[in-house]
Simulated assay, not measured.
Amino acid sequence: MSKGSVNINLYVKQFGINLKKIRESKNMTQLDLATAMNELSTDPLIDKTTISRIENGRTNITLTTSVKISLALGIDLKVLYEFNL
């Protein structure tokens, strides 16, 4: 990695860690979160496996998905991104 380059995977993983912490603090399962997200929109449908992949930093999500997550959790979008690397 060259000077000034960023390891994007660190951000993806930290986002997942934040998501899991917040979800668990709301006493929601991954299935609960997926269901709540799917109630906001019909396309594309989110399943429990997708939530697991996000929380484990194995997938990079879109802004649309981030917004759906924040709405389903009842939090400000910025809370999902509050971390320092």
Score class of each variant (00 low, 15 high):
66 S>Q: 09
77 L>D: 08
69 I>S: 01
65 T>N: 11
27 N>M: 10
42 T>H: 15
73 L>Y: 00
24 E>P: 05
38 N>D: 03
50 T>C: 00
78 K>P: 05
78 K>Q: 08
51 I>Y: 01
75 I>H: 00
15 F>I: 02
22 I>G: 02
62 T>I: 08
73 L>D: 04
71 L>Q: 14
51 I>F: 00
81 Y>E: 08
81 Y>W: 15
40 L>A: 15
15 F>P: 01
48 K>G: 02
68 K>H: 11
71 L>P: 12
80 L>K: 00
18 N>M: 04
56 N>Q: 00
74 G>C: 03
79 V>C: 05
16 G>I: 02
47 D>S: 01
80 L>G: 13
18 N>H: 04
46 I>N: 00
78 K>T: 12
21 K>F: 15
19 L>I: 09
60 N>E: 13
78 K>C: 13
25 S>R: 02
29 T>D: 08
45 L>F: 08
56 N>M: 02
16 G>D: 05
81 Y>L: 14
48 K>Y: 07
30 Q>W: 09
33 L>G: 02
80 L>W: 02
40 L>E: 15
80 L>I: 04
52 S>Q: 13
68 K>C: 00
78 K>Y: 11
70 S>M: 04
24 E>M: 09
50 T>R: 08
57 G>Q: 13
50 T>G: 01
64 T>A: 15
50 T>D: 11
77 L>N: 10
43 D>I: 12
21 K>W: 01
23 R>L: 01
49 T>E: 03
31 L>W: 03
42 T>F: 15
52 S>I: 04
72 A>L: 09
72 A>I: 04
47 D>Y: 03
59 T>V: 12
38 N>Y: 06
69 I>Y: 03
68 K>R: 10
46 I>L: 05
24 E>D: 10
38 N>M: 02
63 L>G: 09
40 L>C: 05
46 I>C: 06
57 G>E: 07
81 Y>N: 03
36 A>M: 07
49 T>D: 09
27 N>P: 04
71 L>D: 12
58 R>Q: 15
77 L>P: 06
63 L>Q: 11
35 T>P: 03
22 I>W: 00
67 V>N: 08
56 N>K: 14
75 I>T: 08
59 T>R: 08
78 K>S: 10
48 K>T: 11
78 K>N: 10
55 E>I: 07
19 L>D: 10
35 T>Q: 14
25 S>M: 09
38 N>A: 01
61 I>K: 00
36 A>N: 05
72 A>Q: 07
28 M>F: 12
19 L>G: 07
43 D>C: 11
27 N>C: 10
20 K>R: 05
71 L>E: 14
37 M>W: 07
30 Q>G: 08
76 D>L: 12
70 S>H: 03
18 N>E: 06
15 F>C: 10
57 G>H: 14
67 V>C: 09
80 L>F: 13
60 N>S: 14
61 I>V: 04
50 T>I: 05
66 S>M: 14
41 S>L: 04
21 K>N: 09
54 I>N: 06
27 N>L: 10
54 I>H: 00
29 T>P: 04
48 K>L: 10
34 A>M: 09
46 I>Y: 01
34 A>K: 04
14 Q>M: 10
24 E>W: 05
43 D>K: 12
33 L>W: 01
33 L>Q: 04
51 I>S: 02
42 T>I: 09
68 K>V: 06
35 T>A: 03
57 G>A: 01
49 T>H: 12
24 E>N: 12
16 G>L: 02
75 I>Y: 06
32 D>G: 14
